[in-house]
Amino acid sequence: MPSLIGPQYLDLTNGSVVDKVTPDMLHLIHPYWNRFAPMDPLMTKILGTFLAMAGVLSFFGNVCDIYGMLGSIFGCASIWTMCMIAVDRFEVIVKGVAGRPMTVKLAVVKIIGIWVFSAFWTVAPMLGWSRYVPEGNLTSCGVDYLTQDWNPKSYLIAYTIACYILPFFLICYSYWFIMAAVSAHEKAMREQAKKMNVKSLRSSEDANKSTEGKLAKIALISISLWFLSWTPYGILNFMGFFESDALTPTISIWGAAFAKAGSSYNPVVYGISHPKYRLALRERFSCLVCGKTEEPVKSEISSEATIKEQETST
């Protein structure tokens, strides 16, 4: 009877688990294992995947560090992505032809810049500038906002300025001047309508709705949702910063909850609510369209173009 020990490399359904052992390792294998058939390939893949993930975690640190890093990088990237959307709208609406047009190259540069910037603030705590620790509810991790040393405090101040105050200012600044520009344009259209002795340059009752009102609503929703998403977490951080006794494990849950909820309604506000996005969605995935997708009224477009030409000539 041939021996079942050794590198015979038989089919996986024959022999024992030791058949796959190379000669230089054979003397280390106890005869006890000769009685067992080779493991199922699927189980080998599952265990291999698990061990690979465990190896990655052991290299980068514990699970709390990974959780904190992921929350930080995706949160910061989300904040600055919304900020860049507002700035792009500012360039198109306020500056018009004088603004820098959005190209594929510029979009890629901005996206890469956002993620590099976010990665810096994410990796900093892993390199010794502050650290990731469990929060009061012990179900999530974030930056250390309770330790009263200057190291974590300086990071918290810098992070708040770079990833909250600055983008919030840019968003408010952009929408303020967008509303001002649209208001001025609407006024010019009304004056032109008076000169032409018509009630309005718009051709339908639906189009008669004030563009100013629509834009004001979009701006208000965008800024409010942004503020609602990230302000609670910022307040929690500074409650710890100033050693407030009002900070409890239950309260600490809400900061992360509001911040994570932003990933749910941001796509609705910045994507599905955008007319051009809905038009593109109707062409490719009509079953997913939400709301109206009518093309802009042609006469309205021509009227607005006439106003722009007159404004340019004057």
Rank of each mutant, 00 (worst) to 15 (best):
P134Y: 11
R202Y: 14
K214T: 11
L281G: 04
K20L: 11
M1S: 13
G96E: 08
F242A: 07
Y159R: 06
I307K: 02
W121M: 06
A219H: 01
E191A: 13
M189L: 15
S263G: 09
F59P: 00
E191I: 08
I93V: 15
I235V: 15
T231S: 06
E191F: 09
K308C: 03
L201R: 12
L57A: 12
G6H: 04
A259R: 02
P152D: 02
T103S: 15
S302I: 08
W115V: 05
L51H: 06
N34I: 03
I272S: 05
M25Q: 13
G48S: 13
C290S: 06
W254P: 00
V17C: 07
S313L: 15
M82E: 02
V94S: 08
D65V: 04
M196H: 09
I66E: 07
L57Y: 14
Y145V: 06
K214F: 10
L57V: 09
A162W: 07
Y145D: 06
P7S: 14
F74M: 11
R89K: 11
A193R: 05
T306W: 04
T160P: 01
A37V: 04
H27K: 14
L4M: 15
F50M: 11
K209W: 10
S200D: 11
P232V: 08
A184L: 11
L166P: 01
V87A: 09
Y32H: 12
S203G: 14
L138P: 00
S204C: 07
G71C: 06
Y175V: 01
L288C: 15
F74V: 08
G142Q: 03
S224Q: 03
N34T: 11
D88S: 13
M25S: 11
I29P: 01
M84T: 02
F241N: 02
K194G: 02
W254Y: 15
K276G: 07
A193E: 04
S229H: 03
C141H: 04
F169Y: 14
P101Q: 13
I253D: 01
H185C: 09
E300V: 02
K194W: 03
F90D: 01
L201Q: 06
H185M: 12
S140L: 06
Y277Q: 05
Y233M: 10
M1K: 13
T49M: 05
A259L: 09
W226E: 00
M53V: 13
V182I: 15
F59Y: 14
P134W: 10
P134M: 13
F36H: 11
S210K: 05
S286C: 11
I29C: 12
C172G: 00
N151Q: 09
T248I: 02
Y67M: 14
R278N: 03
A54N: 12
L279H: 10
K187V: 08
I79Y: 00
T231L: 13
L146T: 10
I73A: 04
S183L: 04
S273K: 00
I111V: 08
S16Y: 02
Y164E: 05
H185S: 14
K276I: 06
I85F: 03
D24K: 11
